[in-house]
Amino acid sequence: MDSQNAIFERIVRPHLDRLYRLSWRLAGSKAEAEDLFQELLLKAYGMLDQLIDIEEPGTWLSRVMYNLFIDQQRRFRRQRLQTVDEGHLPGEGLAAFASDLDPVADKLRYDKLASLDRALNQLSEEHRTVVLLHDTEGYKLAEIQIITDTPVGTLKSRLHRARARLREILESDGTFSR
């Protein structure tokens, strides 16, 4: 491995788990997440001179990934095939379901998560992103502000509306009691 590759890996590797998770939460499917993840690394490698001087490379890389994702979305909107995405087969992420070794509890929990999966896919991209990054991945609003270049006030509003919409969907399908 030459020194440039070693420098790149030293900077990037500590953030790979979090970036992989981010790619999944943005793209919503394994194939697209892994493409996005790879595209980020290609771009980041080409910007190594800049990356070396970044104080918080994790946040910087997250922002670059988000911008790649948005650019990808825009490219396909320009083809007039817009509106709602269904970029993955429903429930693909549920392949990671971890069993509690209690079949009855597992079934109930799996059904709830499958309902949540369907509900999330009914949200707008902006609402889905903020609720997954904040409530599922534990990003602070200040971090999401940097990554998405969106004011915190707007993010709070989106988060509030996204949760309300999720509750509404989950109540209407019987997952939550009214």
């Binding site: 990037v12 999944w24 939460r25 992420g93």
Partner: peptide, 27 residues
């Protein structure tokens, strides 16, 4: 429920392959 929403882990070797591709193709 949102905290419990699962996500698969990267397959073994995926990060190494992705880094190698970036280094190989990213000049």
């Amino acid at each position: 429920l949102l905290k419990d929403y699962p996500m698969p882990q990267a397959e073994a070797g995926f990060y190494d392959q992705a880094l190698a591709k970036a280094a190989h193709r990213g000049t």
